[in-house]
Computed example of a mutant assay.
Amino acid sequence: MDTPDEPRLLIVEDDDAFARTLQRSFERRGYQVLRADSLEAVREVLTQQRPGYAVVDLRLSGGASGLACVQCLHAIHPECVIVVLTGYASIATAVEAVKLGARHYLAKPANTDDIEAAFARSEGDVDVELTARTTNIKTLEWERIHEMLASTDFNISETARRLGMHRRTLARKLEKQRVK
């Protein structure tokens, strides 16, 4: 288990360059860093180590979902504080990540300070600002597309088929910035 002097962190990320950058940053802050790039690698790490913290990328190579890694981590080591980090944020995947055991869900780009702050927060914030803005149709469309993407393990062709649109149309929509 972690000691206060050297907390143990598992980074689940298939982008080697990004994982190395995170690793170096957390090691400078005193963490012992373990790395995994797949669900199988997570299981292997957990046979020998019990990290107190984990940063899990939502979308892993080969169509694998980081949600499966969150579920595995939480099932084997429920005390682990898990933060999901993704460039494909959606309400659907955020809800599922929390249901599966993640403490927080951060959209990329997020830095080490953001991740550490998420580790430290154990309670929700009742003072979070509620917006008076109603959801517009573009935001609803964006969220529906990402919900479907998550349910198809980010398979663009299958998502387009289920949404009843051409694959190229879906690809163009995904290239656009989200409406804020």
Rank of each mutant, 00 (worst) to 15 (best):
P78T: 03
L58M: 10
H166D: 15
A36W: 01
D5W: 01
Y105C: 11
M148C: 15
S157I: 05
S122E: 13
D153W: 00
F26N: 04
V33D: 06
V12P: 08
P7R: 03
R162C: 07
A36F: 02
A171R: 10
L100Y: 08
F154I: 00
C72S: 13
E175C: 06
A36T: 03
K99Q: 13
R8S: 12
P51L: 01
K176S: 14
W142D: 13
Y105Q: 11
L170S: 09
K138D: 15
L34G: 03
E27H: 01
F154C: 01
H146D: 02
S61H: 09
N136A: 02
L9E: 02
A97K: 10
E123R: 12
I11A: 06
Y88R: 12
H77Y: 09
R172A: 13
L130R: 13
Q48I: 02
I137T: 13
Q32L: 12
L46G: 10
V45F: 01
P109T: 03
R167E: 14
E147W: 02
L85T: 03
L140Y: 06
D114F: 03
L10E: 07
D114Y: 04
V83S: 04
R103W: 11
A17T: 10
G87C: 09
T159D: 09
G164T: 05
S65I: 04
D15E: 14
A54P: 09
T93C: 15
Q23H: 02
H74N: 15
V98N: 04
A92Y: 14
R20M: 09
A68K: 10
K180F: 07
